[in-house]
Write a protein that binds this DNA or RNA. Structure first.
Lengths: 209, 209, 209, 209
DNA sequence: CATGAATGAGGCTTCATTCAT
DNA sequence: AATGAATGAAGCCTCATTCAT
């Protein structure tokens, strides 16, 4: 029993160890340039070991998205928990959550798009694919719920909450992507946070009546 | 000589033939999964021929971005040409241009991000890199100019026009990316245009006083 | 640990296995005609494995030169060890060493020239390049030292020992090269050893007072 | 008649034009790194044209050796023409001829060895191969004849003249090869001529009674 | 479970050669 | 005869994955 559990925990710890390493390597080099050996080295494991915990490179990659989506979900659930919170407070919570998600792993957000983009591979096992779908879906739903609350109270324009959520998420990821790519191109200073704040402000303003 | 000219035209036609094929293949498979042989086959040419027109895979890839950026630039220049146009007419022109850019090549927008992302390699010749930088820069500048006009007239909030342009562009590309990836995930219907319209509406509303 | 050591030895054995195969294939076909696949097949390994032991084709190639230079160095050091040996005995030792070097690997001498010729590429890692330089240098120095001894004792003409060493080495390699190429051209019998003996005799005679 | 002849001459001129270009390119880059396009560009012709004059790359390459061997033959024939010249004068002529051969085209001598070495290809047409064999043979024979003369007069040691000629040629080419490769390795000053003089002096001294 | 050496398929790219103009 | 665009075979090398220890 106890021994079973400890094994379980150890196994999970290993998984995390690999995920952390993978996050770093994928962030530094991107999916294709990152090699399994890079990740193994970073995790201080051997390449073979990675395959004991992840079916293949793509599934390992997908796990990162899962991880951040789980975190996002958690945060959004927390915001929605208190049903009586006034809309603007909820919005505050939402924005704070988004900032934290970004801080949680700035680069992985970018990689998530590669994952979702056509480039990425259909080799994902259905289970992982399903889990991603579900988490992404429930994240959007949670955001939509926040907006729905404001709409119901007449604070926001009367649009489908999910559409607003999609746009909000698009804005969030678009800004990260664009500001980051500007840095690659220009090496100038990193205005991301300020730009993000302004973007959110415009968005909230834009949906307010 | 007429003969000289015809050769020139033929050469350009070949380039286009390759670009069209590359666009299709890159869009279908993404940069890394697409092989030069795929593209050659699609273009009904031999692999070696591609290298007569493009230095390497990445430069061929970059050419696609160049092409769409050139188109965007052209359209935006047109909008800015008439200095006396009222801000809201200019905005109309801007939105129309963005729609057309998307129609011009929906998938390539997505690939542009791969190009700019950290994943992308420095094998690009400096000239091509410079040209991309310049075109991207002048596109943003043109968009900023449109907003600047509205700001000066007191129609829009007093923020740095370039920041607004960055956010606008982020929103545009974020929506494309997100809606596209939703389709990959969900295979549901394509709400992109409607979502984009709403996104733009919110944005304009958001920056209006 | 014994286990550590055995692995070390096995790894070295593999290296040798590859080197032996490479020697054969390079000797048969020359650098450019020899393919890595040829070598892998000869070594009964897969192509990828070669790259676990050698950075690239050129470095594998260079290793062969290194190996023979190391052997030459060893032999020459041995000759020079006994400082009191009379000059003619040292010359005997030198000639014997040269013969053995040739026996050690007749063809590789020829390939060494390809390595050094302008044709050869700079893909060699600096370390390997340095090592070759150093070994070649110390070989020549060792030969020069032998001659210097004879010069000091008034047995040989008073010329810079290094110049004599260069000429001696040139003669040695020139004879190998020429006799070998005659065989390619003519397929006649192999007079190399006899020619070499005569060449050395003339040389020694030529530098004697 | 005249028209036929002129065409013949023009064709020969073209051949020479190509040979000159090939000499330069092969000398700069070596056989494998030199491309037919390089040569065509240097000759201000198109790649296709080269194939009107030479069957393939290798045969073009072989022509260079032919050319220098022809020159050497000519010079040696001249030395041997005057049968009554005393041996030491003939040697002077020989040495002078060798120096001129080197000046005629320093690098091509080196390439000749690549040509003759195992690396080089059996693709040569039999005619070209035969011609090379013949020219090389008659050059050696001419050199041997010079030595034979001295042997008969009792000035040189009694060895087979052809063996001496082989060794002489080996020495000559060995010095060129070695000094050149030293330069590649060391980038130091070019001592070739001085070394060559000393080498010849030692050789002559060595074969003298 | 962990290892890490070995695999081998497959990609990008070059370039000698051809052939329609 | 000359051209030069097109060909396509072939080479080097990488790296995800496996498997004997």
């Amino acid at each position: 029993m106890g021994i079973q559990e400890r094994k379980e925990r150890e196994k999970e710890r290993r998984r995390q160890q690999i995920i952390v390493a993978a996050k770093k390597v994928f962030s530094d080099k991107g999916f294709n340039k990152a090699t399994m050996e890079d990740i193994a080295t970073e995790a201080e494991l051997s390449p073979g070991t990675l395959y004991l915990y992840f079916k293949n490179k793509e599934e390992l990659y997908a796990s990162l998205s899962l991880r951040i989506l789980q975190y996002l979900n958690l945060r959004l659930a927390h915001v929605n928990k208190d049903a009586d919170l006034p809309p603007d407070k909820k919005i505050d919570g939402l924005l704070e959550a988004m900032h934290d998600v970004y801080d949680f792993d700035p680069m992985i957000i970018i990689n998530m798009f590669h994952l979702q983009s056509s480039e990425t591979l259909r080799n994902l096992s259905p289970e992982v694919m399903d889990e991603i779908k579900e988490l992404a879906g429930s994240s959007i739903a949670a955001i939509a719920k926040i907006f729905a609350c404001g709409i119901k109270q007449g604070a926001y324009i009367d649009q489908h909450p999910t559409a607003l959520a999609d746009i909000f998420w698009s804005l969030f990821s678009g800004v990260i992507l664009w500001e980051t790519s500007k840095n690659v191109i220009d090496k100038k200073k990193d205005y991301l946070k300020k730009t993000m704040d302004l973007a959110f402000k415009i968005f909230i303003n834009g949906i307010s009546k």
